[in-house]
Amino acid sequence: MHIAHDTKPVLEIDRVDKTFHVAGRAVPALRDVSLDLRPGEFVAIVGASGCGKSTLLRLILGLDTDYQGEVRVDGRRVERPGLDRAIVFQEPRLLPWLSAEGNVAMALRRSGLPKAERRQLVAEHLELVGLTAFADAWPAQLSGGMAQRVALARALVNRPRFLLMDEPLGALDALTRLRLQGELSRIVRHGGITALLVTHDVDEAVFLADRIVVMQPHPGRVAEVLPIALGPQRNRSAPAFLRIRDEVLAMLGVTPSDDQPEEPARTAIRLVN
């Protein structure tokens, strides 16, 4: 989806500084971080461990309000968690004593919707993530990928305006991850949700995002913001895709040749293309 740049930002992170106090010492976690998200935009944050990506998500969620600067939604400062902002954590965080369906329904506790409508929404969202047949399964019976889909359904069932994701696919095997990236792209874009994805995986960021924010650690700060001018249908082996990926990797201090010992194979793909 292409975003008109004259639309007003719906989520503003405005010169945010966050410092943790560990054993009497001040450890800066975020320094002067600013970032605006426009409606329907998909932004990915990439960076090494310790660059404060997860901390930033906690501030946006309103789980932590002890920081300098401001996080605003529609121009108003975020004071507490709200159902307009949903999150998928790295681990599914399902409640083990509830079925898949029960876990999704938990998100609707505070929705104020009547029971029948809730049941309908839960069923729809389980279908959206392809788990209708597993509605009654317990979390312990689900694979990692299935559990994370339940977590995605739980995040989406309130039809939030913002979907925050904290390395949501990081703990999954490579094949499941690729498949879920495709599903995520379809679901988020189809729903017109504004998404902020934190990830270690540069390929994932290039595959999903409209913009990539590269962060640097100690203290966490924004190093670069890179618009991704690829269409909604992305080919992971297209030259343009690989060029952007290498560019992002270079920003993270990884030279593509270190990372890609199979360079000749890629040249071959380029020739075919």
């Binding site: 968690p81 709200g82 949903a86 409640l95 998100a107 506790r109 505070r110």
Partner: peptide
């Protein structure tokens, strides 16, 4: 789990119950 309940904007009773 405490964080999850906070994100889902659970009140005290829902937190205890679920």
């Amino acid at each position: 789990h405490v964080e999850l309940a906070a994100v889902l904007t659970f009140g005290r009773l829902d937190f205890i119950r679920f």
